[in-house]
Amino acid sequence: MNTFRNLHPVTLLLYFSFVTVFSVFNFNPVYLCFSLLGAALYFASVKGVFVMLKSMAGYFIMLLAVAALNPLFSHNGATALFFINDNRVTLEAFCFGAALGLAIASALCWFSCIGEVFDSEKLLYLFGRASPKLAAVISLSLRLVPGIFKSFKEIHSAQSSFSSNQGRVRRFLSSFSAVITQSLENSIITADSMNARGFALKKRTRFSRFRFTAYDAGFSAFFVLLGTFICVGWFSFEFYPVISIGRLNALNIMSVVLFAVMSLTPFAYEVKEGVKWKISLSKI
């Protein structure tokens, strides 16, 4: 089955850099709602609805926390709810906090989608040509932390089963020191292994399965076009001193609609391919 992640890595990189930039550098809740919706739906189609809802619950708690904390640090805004030590606590600051939380939640959600989409092969393909060292470092460090956790779990369970008379802290410390020793050993082995596979050689060719087809080119052009028109019609959302949107024109509305199209593209792609798969199943 063909899925969104099977698009060419360059196209995917283009798409995800667009949506994450639009989600991170932006406090306009109109855009952010669509961004979060698109990210959540795509995440659900990749990892399942239950996993998505679980992470959404976490994001929601974070959103509430940011919304509750922002008014305590920012006292700008015309609607005073109450006063703490002569500083006003305002509705506008609360709303800005909520928008900030929304921005963080949608960015996190897009980043977990990115984690699902970009495996080390794609990363090596994307950054390997520009800087093989950088690509090696990225893929090594991506593997490092989960690897350390895994070996810690193994060592700790072994330690726990043969030395039950040790205290918890002592047991933890001895497992920890064993993990450190092992990872030092591993780093030497990794270096040897990299040398043996010709890492330091000047002339080296690489094989990758990715081919930039007309299909990928079409999608890339589509994303660039969408991004341009979204930027052209971008409108600002003012929180201070009163919440206000400037007068909206057709360009602004088009920008929001196109942004919704852009954020929902991966999910729509998955749905389309799913339907196609169902239809093409043999009915014998």
Binding site: A80, F82, F83
Partner: peptide, 10 residues
């Protein structure tokens, strides 16, 4: 340590 007042009160 904080004095909390409603807007009308303040």
């Amino acid at each position: 340590g904080c004095s909390v007042k409603s807007a009308e009160e303040y």
